[in-house]
Amino acid sequence: MTIFTLDEVEKTFTNGEIEENILKGISLSLKEGEITALVGTSGSGKSTLLTIAAGLQPASNGEVLFDGNNLTTMSDEQVRKVRAKEFGFVFQFAHLVPFLTVEEQLMLMLEVSGSTLSKKEQKNEVDQVLDVIGMEHRKNAYPSSLSGGEKQRVAVARAIIHKPKVLFADEPTASLDSKRSKDMMELIRYLTKKMNITTLMVTHDEEMLSYVDRILQMSDGMVLENE
């Protein structure tokens, strides 16, 4: 079942006098529970496409349809609510809140997503996820005392704790070594499959492609699909 559709999405940036057409009419759809990888040369527009899909910047033209809603016509506040409730984000760096413990990071995400669970249920939820990512013993640690791989695992936990429908990941393994990258991909695959989360992921790393269901090749603002 299709949960996410981009229809003829275009993006134009104006640098002074020059208009640059970064996305040249992209149409694609994501199937529920599938992991889709966006690959392509640097500057081909992968991150731009991902952030438009995630409602972090508007498209110049075209439509972004999520679960029956048109993100392109929603107000900023409505888009924010969708992001908080239905989307999860992982980026190249973990970007954890430096003054919150691992547990607090996840509790905050639950709160932001508008969770209706009681405090106790939320704590249970957090404990379970921490158990899955193997970080239970560090739940009272602050990010500054975590390793790069640990931080990124917490970032993944934060991205899925509120059971979003879609996970957006922009080069989630780029800051990790090869062993940790594989662990990270395994974790993402395990979690999204278990929770039936649709994933759109940008990656540079060929090795990571074995963990995805579908690969979209981008080139110069266009998508050339291949399997």
């Binding site: 995630a54 972090l56 924010r80 609510k81 992001r83 908080a84 409730k85 989307f87 984000f89 980026f91 970007h95 809140v97 430096p98 995400m109 932001v112 997503s113 934060r158």
Partner: peptide
Amino acid sequence: IGLYGILKAIGIK
């Protein structure tokens, strides 16, 4: 600034 950006991205008002 980076932190605020990320917090806004995940949906904090």
